[in-house]
């Protein structure tokens, strides 16, 4: 299955570059914000589909999501279908990364340094990652066929160099809703700067800081190792 969507990546990139160079290019800007608070939203995926003519997905890439201090980093990763993602563990505790999402169900047994082989995501969709023994660890891999896509930074902005023309605009955010499979749909012109306010309907995410129990454990550990 992993092998089915495989293509020669360098030729694709080359082709894209050629196409881009041949077309007049415009800078499309999207700013994503929380409709309720007006605060800019980071980790939003912005995808643009040209409305006119044929478009194809970018070539697959290699990427990784690191576990550090019981956190997946980055929190949101956008890749084209067929991309391979590895999950290296940089913590002292073991993690068991798993996902039951539609694009691909997989589970990597508890591991520490011995990083398992990368996982290939062929089907488009949103993959929700978790750790079986750390309920608060969560990450998302958005497998998107959009020719142009990016993740908003802390200021909620993306800027995409796209050929001129009208585009179909899709935006996804982890907190958009709880299934994590729906997108916000809209229109965008290539040279348009647009602000999108998202109504976030998902449950609040688990907290990030170490719990009381975890701190107790730390204390107990320090007491145990100190002597």
């Amino acid at each position: 299955m992993r092998a089915s969507g495989k293509r020669p990546v360098p030729s694709l990139i080359l082709l894209a570059l050629l196409l881009l160079a041949a077309m007049p290019v415009a800078a499309a800007g999207v700013t994503v914000a929380d409709a309720a608070t007006g605060q800019p939203l980071a980790n939003a995926v912005v995808a643009l589909y040209p409305r006119a003519g044929h478009s194809s997905a970018p070539p697959p890439v290699r990427a990784s999501i690191v576990q550090r201090r019981a956190t997946f980093m980055p929190h949101v990763l956008v890749v084209p279908p067929g991309s391979r993602v590895s999950f290296p563990n940089r913590d002292t505790t073991r993690h068991q990364v798993y996902s039951f999402s539609p694009p691909l169900t997989f589970s990597l047994n508890l591991y520490l340094r011995e990083t398992p082989p990368p996982v290939t995501f062929d089907r488009a969709g949103v993959e929700v990652l978790g750790c079986n023994i750390h309920d608060h660890m969560q990450a998302f891999i958005v497998i998107s066929e959009a020719p142009f896509s990016a993740v908003t930074a802390a200021d909620g902005r993306v800027a995409l160099e796209v050929p001129a023309g009208p585009y179909r605009l899709r935006i996804w955010h982890p907190l958009l809703e709880d299934t994590h499979q729906q997108w916000w749909e809209g229109q965008l012109d290539a040279d348009e700067q647009r602000r999108v306010a998202l109504t976030l309907r998902a449950s609040p995410p688990p907290r990030d800081e170490p719990s009381e129990l975890a701190r107790h454990f730390q204390q107990a550990l320090q007491q145990g190792t100190a002597p």
């Binding site: 002292t92 068991q96 047994n109 508890l110 975890a214």
Partner: peptide, 20 residues
């Protein structure tokens, strides 16, 4: 599985997690 690893840090984190 975590308990079976007997790795102290893992134990602590899983205990904390499950305690939570």
């Amino acid at each position: 599985s975590a308990v079976a690893t007997r790795d102290t840090a893992t134990l602590a984190s899983v205990l904390a997690n499950h305690g939570e």
